[in-house]
Amino acid sequence: MKWKRSRWLELALVVVVLTLVGILVNNLAVNLIRTGLGLSFEWLWQPAGFALSEHTLPYQPGDSTAWALLVSWLNSLRVIACSIVLATVLGVGAGAARRSLNPLLRQLAGLYVGLIRQIPLLLQLLFWYFVAFLGLPSQPFAPIGTLISLSNQGVGILGLNLSVEFSAVLVGLSVFTGAAIAEVVRGGLDSVPRGQWEAFRSLGINEGLGLRRVVLPQALPAILPALSSQYLNLAKNSTLAIAVGYADLYAVSDTAITQTGRAIEGFLILLLSFLALNLLINGGMQVLNRIVVHPAQRT
């Protein structure tokens, strides 16, 4: 009897939700007809008419808007992929350091996590860009031999030239997400019984090796799900790049929307692009999850 009632409730809710969605779609359709706009994607194939400050594929203002959007999507992808790697290294390092025997390391990691998590990401990005990177001298200087050259016109690492905009978004996203990942990792490590730590320490295995071979493999099943949601957050947060002048997908579709007046179509493309991007990340993490989690632990 009870089961049946909850079923009815669910059915009613579904009907309500569908009706509301219907009203929204109908509103959109009615308003589009009223303003005589209608949906159209022809503008995608017209010349973009704006330059991009950076692009991995060849691009010129005379190329189509669709090409400009693709090039900028790759810019987004590039900064997201690099940030995920860097954030993971930072996060795992800091998370492990919080459970280290070395008190200095523990406190430094605690300070990092505590500080970074209290400050909004936008502020951090603005800080990294306008204060840290643009605060560099305009003539390149190389603090560590020829390894790195720094200036407010660009950053060179091992002969690879990065724009200051890319560098600021990369560092900002990585440092911010790294702090969140550190907490995820710490939580995962805490889920491993104390006895396991004591066991490898009593066998004389050093901290690094014990962490890698004994604790982390057992902690991973607890870490991975939360980790993938951090990756998804990172991808979504990358749209803040517009604040620091990086030509990512959001910034470029913003320009395209202004020039064509096609706001609804532009936002639809944005939505679908991010959906595709996040499904990609999610899929990758699920594969990883399947490999890492021991069959016996699966539910």
Binding site: S53, F130, N152, A243, V244
Partner: peptide, 21 residues
Amino acid sequence: PYKPIKYQDLNQVVAGYLQGR
């Protein structure tokens, strides 16, 4: 050829310019 550095609003444009970007 030129390189547009595009920001969201005028204050950021001013900051980027004054900082020498």
